[in-house]
Amino acid sequence: MNSLVLNNITKTFDKGSVLAVDNVSFSVKEGELFGLIGPDGAGKTTIFRILSTLMLPDKGNASVLGYDVVKDYKKIRNLVGYMPGRFSLYQDLSVKENLQFFATLFGKSIEKNYDIIKDIYEQIKPFSNRRAGKLSGGMKQKLALSCALIHKPKILFLDEPTTGVDVVSRFEFWEILKKLKSQGITILVSTAYMDEAMKCERIALIQKGKMLGLDTPQKIIESYPMKLYGAKADDIYSLLKDLRNYDQVESCYPFGEWLHVTIKNPNADGLEVLKTFPNSSTHQNLEVKIIEPGIEDNFIRLMNTSDNSRDNN
């Protein structure tokens, strides 16, 4: 059974001049941890705002737990926990008061629903009388999550929950999400960090409002259609320029200390091609190797092909 269904959702801003979400369709199964992956400005937040009934789509329809986001918005609001990207709790109320406030908004009490937030809230409990504005970034995140969970939602929308949070807190946060998932809560989470994509059960890649691909992270990686090579040398910038000018090379982009390269001819031995390209002798300590593609490589590839097809049209 699907907790969340989107059909051809389109949303524009400024009287249609800015296309934020372009004909997006996907569905999320009950109890699934689903990731929306894309850079800033891809349209992730707009999708969240439509699903949490804050915004009306221009075209298409969507349903949350079987309720239509336009017609049954009142029912959805009782069942959904939404945590916006920006920390938006009352900075001048204490941790406890914030939690109490959001519990009361939904007509619930902290005591009754304490079990669901226990693991998270225990960590910030020592600061329960501190003003929310004076918490650290990671603690604010935990408080915001507690507030989004206190009414026991069936589905949780998390818009870039880990942006601006340190590595340790990010790791902890994903551990918490796994636990929540095991309690049967459906989670839709967005992130711009590719490493976090691996922690989702299924992901949708989004760029400029368009969906580029949707599958499990593993399948998306496996779907990479060609061999990927890595190359590096002392002067990495001139190597990048040389390889991009070489007609055998299909694509080449920097990735950490390596350049990721694909070759046009699928039958050629890429390692040999890269070692013997015309200017190769001018590069000191040239190294080449075969590389396992990651989500990011797929993303860049899908992004380029969608850009090309758009240009060709």
Partner: peptide, 13 residues
């Protein structure tokens, strides 16, 4: 400005 109105808007209040 703080974004808290959104939190209130998504609640059944």
């Amino acid at each position: 400005e703080m974004g808290t109105i959104e939190q209130i808007n998504v609640s059944p209040i």
